[in-house]
Design a protein around this nucleic acid. Structure first.
Lengths: 339, 339
DNA sequence: ATGAAAGCGCTAACAA
DNA sequence: TTGTTAGCGCTTTCAT
């Protein structure tokens, strides 16, 4: 183990380059008002010393932190699955990697942790917030933006005031699923919808209804059972649907976990998939390929969502008074054996 | 949007409490050498003002950052799955939540990002490093600890010098899997092993071999096919095993993804699971429950691993010259339909 | 284009 | 037990 030796400072760079600290600072921060010679000398000194600016010192004077925080506000029963979150994270990191910003991660469950997170962002520890909220009714978005801290949400806010957010096209995706099923000759559709207090639930149901109505199929619009995004809830909802509508020939599930549950329920009821009943799910948990039969899904560009969130947040930090922007990314139908 | 008003400073607290800055600092940092009266006055002032210490200012003088970094050094073809990583993260956050440390996340793929991460760590931006390395031969562990920065690894280092790490009991877990299969009457075992250049691969194979030999079954020790932790590699390896040893009646796969592949291969070969062939996998991707039939697995305490990593790192930061510690956490056999 | 100087908010000797 | 003082490394007027 090597002893941590003190990192070189601006001062030392200045001395080696034969200029003042101010000039070094200008070079480091890319100011234009520096002569080429000075610039070269400073850069040489920086390289020779392996100088890296001290974040704390810089932050102290600039009052920026060069830090973004990603808050994942989970409900005790986590609905969205880990792969979803991990993919967003990957996108976020990708978008951040060309910048000098650091990403702090905060997972908040329950009120205590939520309040702690709120205090953290409220006390000027970060330049901006990326928020993934798994609660339908969450005070965080309002609290954060009320504190004047730039904020971008993952997902539309149901009760939403005007906030910046990035979302997948849940309505369009659900619509695509239905259109595909109808094009494949299915006529008696049903859907396993998500919770009515979350925008993903609401939007996917809306897409389903729009599409069946657009096809002149008023009956299917009414065949709805609600789940909570878990596999078990999907199984139960599907069993219910089968009981109420024994003749249905297609199920659109608002998540892949629920689609998995639908698969299970259908098998239990002796229906073959997709011969008797076709199944399409919205891809939240990246489980499509491992299902049996492999799931046809509506895929969201999750990693891209992470990237776009960063892009949007940086724009908002640069211009805090611009109008809120809503970024809605297209989904894609991926056909597999289940439909 | 509320304007960000300047946060109260130590100075203001001191003035309100009628003491000096030093005293306030002592109270904030929990020094004992403060009179009860002063303490009370300061605490009141802090509460009234909503004072929170400025990290940057503190960090500047203490030369601590109160920041830990979690680096995930991925290979281009990510082997470990997202849920694994996400669970570690949850454990890390849990362990961190009672402290005042912040967690910075760095995902590094490829040399450029790796070097950037190394520079970041080397320049005193963090107090300690949690490293999840997905490379068998990775210079990061050595580089980081050579820089004198406290480090804890997830997983044993194959080529390892003496480093602190937290790992699941891969040898013991594999052993348990085999013992279970043998106890269930299986006699012609085979294994789909992981890469030979990663400790998870090596250890799980070792556990398998130890257990079959311990049962006096020398033949099974030789029935090994190697995969790379992906489903497809598991399918291929199993197909190979079936070709070489048509009479095998049990497969131990070194990951659940590979177990899924084994399931597929067995079905393709017309074998029933578990009637003809039993399958047990090591649980890396939390897919066990969704497989068909549901997978019997060796479950790792992934979240706990994250917690232990933090605990170990904090200990190392507190005492940098203590001997390296190896924490090996027990696994658990979870029996499901596949075996 | 460059430098001198002030000061961001805090901790840590040192003195009292 | 308390206060005074001297910076930590950097950016940023303000002169020059």
């Amino acid at each position: 183990m090597v002893a941590q030796r003190r990192a070189p400072t601006l001062e030392e760079v200045a001395e080696l380059a034969g200029v003042s600290r101010a000039t070094v600072s200008r070079v480091v921060n890319g100011s234009s008002r520096v002569s080429p010679e000075a610039q070269a000398a400073v850069n040489a000194a920086i390289a020779q010393l392996g100088y890296v600016p001290n974040r704390a010192a810089r932050s102290l004077v600039t009052r920026r932190t060069d830090t973004l925080v990603l808050i994942v506000h989970e409900r005790p029963d986590t609905v969205f699955s880990d792969p979803f979150f991990a993919s967003v994270l990957r996108g976020v990191n990708q978008a951040l990697s060309p910048t000098d910003l650091q990403l702090v991660l905060l997972q908040a469950q329950g009120e205590a942790q939520r309040d702690r997170a709120l205090r953290y962002v409220g006390n000027g520890h970060v330049d901006g917030v990326l928020l993934i909220s798994l609660h339908g009714d969450d005070i965080m978005p309002t609290a954060i933006s009320a504190a004047g801290v730039p904020l971008v949400m993952a997902g539309r806010l149901l009760t939403g005031g005007p906030l910046d957010y990035v979302d997948a096209d849940n309505v369009g995706g659900a619509r695509d699923a239905v259109r595909y099923l109808i094009a494949a000759g299915r006529r008696r559709l049903a859907t396993v919808a998500g919770p009515g207090d979350m925008s993903v639930g609401v939007d996917r149901l809306r897409g389903y209804r729009e599409a069946v109505r657009e096809a002149g199929d008023q009956a299917s619009a009414g065949r709805v059972a609600v789940g909570d995004f878990t596999e078990e809830s999907g199984r139960r909802a599907t069993t219910q649907l089968l009981a109420d509508h024994p003749d249905l020939d297609a199920v659109f599930a608002a998540s892949d976990l629920m689609a998995l549950g639908a698969l299970r329920a259908l098998r239990e009821a002796g229906r073959r998939v997709p011969e008797d009943v076709a199944v399409v799910g919205f891809d939240d948990a990246a489980l499509a390929a491992y299902a049996d039969p492999p799931l046809t899904t509506i895929r969201q560009p999750v990693e891209l969502m992470g990237q776009e969130m960063v892009r949007l947040l940086l724009a908002r930090i640069a211009d805090p008074y611009a109008d809120p922007t809503e970024v809605v990314l297209p989904t894609e139908l991926v056909v597999r054996a289940s439909a």
